[in-house]
Design a protein around this nucleic acid. Sequence first.
DNA 1: CCGATTTAAATCGGGATACAAATTAACTGG
DNA 2: CCAGTTAATTTGTATCCCGATTTAAATCGG
Lengths: 403, 403
Amino acid sequence: MKTADPELMRAINRFLVLDTIRRHGAIARVEIGERTDLSATTVSAITASLLDDGLITVQHEGDIRSQTLRGRPRVMLALNPEAAWVVGAKLAANRIVFVATNFQGDVLANLTLPVRVDRLPTEVIVDLVEDGVRRCVRDAGLGLNQINTIALSLPGIIEHGTGKVLSSGVLRDADVSLHAAIASRLGIATIVESDANAITMAEHWFGQARDLDDFVLVAIEETLGLGVMHGGQLFRGARGLSLTLGDMIMGAGGDNAIKLADLASERAIVNGSHDDPGMAEAMQLGQGMVQVRRAIEAGDEALRTAAARAGAALGIAMANLVALFAPHRVIVVGSTLALGEHLLAPLRQAFANAIPAPLAQLAEIVIDEADDKTWARGAAAVALGELYGSPWGTTGPARRAAQ
Amino acid sequence: MKTADPELMRAINRFLVLDTIRRHGAIARVEIGERTDLSATTVSAITASLLDDGLITVQHEGDIRSQTLRGRPRVMLALNPEAAWVVGAKLAANRIVFVATNFQGDVLANLTLPVRVDRLPTEVIVDLVEDGVRRCVRDAGLGLNQINTIALSLPGIIEHGTGKVLSSGVLRDADVSLHAAIASRLGIATIVESDANAITMAEHWFGQARDLDDFVLVAIEETLGLGVMHGGQLFRGARGLSLTLGDMIMGAGGDNAIKLADLASERAIVNGSHDDPGMAEAMQLGQGMVQVRRAIEAGDEALRTAAARAGAALGIAMANLVALFAPHRVIVVGSTLALGEHLLAPLRQAFANAIPAPLAQLAEIVIDEADDKTWARGAAAVALGELYGSPWGTTGPARRAAQ
DNA sequence: CCGATTTAAATCGGGATACAAATTAACTGG
DNA sequence: CCAGTTAATTTGTATCCCGATTTAAATCGG
């Protein structure tokens, strides 16, 4: 816990103002004051400094007259989209997705590399990331030297701050310092983050949780991820570790103990039909769940059962999460959603059965079929969040190696 | 998120100083400065104010000479034990335990009312609490008017801030405002808190986690409770809800879905032997697990199996908690520990099997056979924590109803 | 067209805070 | 009894927030 001094005070209020502008879009000083409970004096001082630093700009044009037509008109302030640029990337089993965004998180360019990352040596992955970043930056009409931060997200357990990957389904090795490798390769500050945290950030900034500072997100793809937003901050465990969901054991012990990942991951769902060559093909292309859905609707009862089993397990896991974190909302994202109601109907039912009565009204379930670009954009948002200078250690300062 | 102003700044630093004194015991100003990274000037100013408010005192006597014998001697500052008094209470199924403590949490008096709270109407419980508080306060040589806050802890889901009990195993009704009832009855500010949170506080202040700001606590008694300490603050869900563990579903859905409480609560363990009148008797007296242990050691295989099953389920649940919260330590407390290794051996083994490899080194399990007094003392610590004026909303201000 | 009105933003002055440097206090040691 | 040493306080400066006042930039109304 940090000691408070005037600098911290200013940092907090400055962040508050900047975040208010980001959330609201173009906004006048008076209104910032109303929303933040800061005095007009302070808002003026802080916005002057933000203008000075080029993080925000005045918007004269398109100046929609304020409702009240009298008096001195409000001067609208908005983020300066060109204050900085970042690259966000999502590393998944069979693809790498990049987006370049400006300071407000608008996607300027995106790029998908359809490669089986699974079995590649880490060095090669770093190569691919480097290439992807370079191309994506060029596609955005930018130069590498204009990129402030790169945020790479991938599934697994990741130590925030050091950027060490303790374990990940897409890396062959454990305890990889992806972070340092990429940072030194490109000479740009780099953040490595769990993909679940990235998409959690995306939902908070751009998606289904813009209005909420307390929610839980369940990411169902090749691996099962978990993100927890608590008081507007990503919740991290001790040492800044990201959380995991796939390792949750369903079952009371003994023989019926089974990991959630073995019930509800995409691999687990297709397990029975793995001999079908078409299915294997689709899985490699990331279209596995689309294929499964087709098969189910063509009458494949084994897959229907598998999907239902996965949905039920997820529903129970989500009920457990509600009991453990008491969030207002549980957001479900990920490619497995392509199964549609074959997954969701049993999920909802299991959730409803498993949720303790007093909590039944607390949390709503929201399904969001976010695409890959959104995930990568979430990684970008993680990077931007640090640029905004959040004064709470939740996200430590961007680690810059090299350079 | 609050806006920062000089007042908040001072509140933070003041709390920091007071907390440093509490944790360290008698300590000189210089050392406070070193530990908190505040300047000597600021420490002097804050301690002067604390002295002025009577929260701390100088210790001239017993003035152990500082190591270095030269120079002006240090003036040791310590909490003023008489700065305030609080009562902490633990409401359990078959007893109510009270402690009265001074400002530093020393227990001045304690009292156990061996009553079956289970089936009593709420009004009667409030009566009992009132009587208990009055007696305990008198036993401590205090007057009711000297008591600053009462903190009542009980199992269940409790909304911090409003003090509403959404559900509890020891109350017949749901949605009870115990809080207001007691506060108005005694005319003293009252806090209602989950018992798991209370014992979590106790471990942090007095017990096995004095050195740690990130840990998880599992309370195994008649009901199963969960406390999460995160960054030195009790983690609460949205709306300030306390967390629950007993509602965790073990099992993947369908027929083998079962609540942890139905596997590992004391009632679940003795379930098979409920017809034994001696056992029923012991359970009512809170000696159930001692009795079970005796029975196991006398050869009762059914109970041995039940205990092992409970242990295994708990071990898995704890592994899940480590995956979900990534804490440094998991502390286990509660009367079920009386089963000893009959419970713990399978617990440890299940935990070891279930914990994901990368996390295996992260969290250690600590067993703490805390007695009832410690739980009640934890409730007192919750009350004291608010008196110390923690500036972070985590624990809202003590709600005072009535007078 | 110009002054009154209205609202927004900037400026001024007061109060609180933290900190560094200088000063005072309270010892020990020879 | 004085020099040396360490602790604590005092002094002076910079920063920050805020309320009140002033300035700015519109509209309205005759």
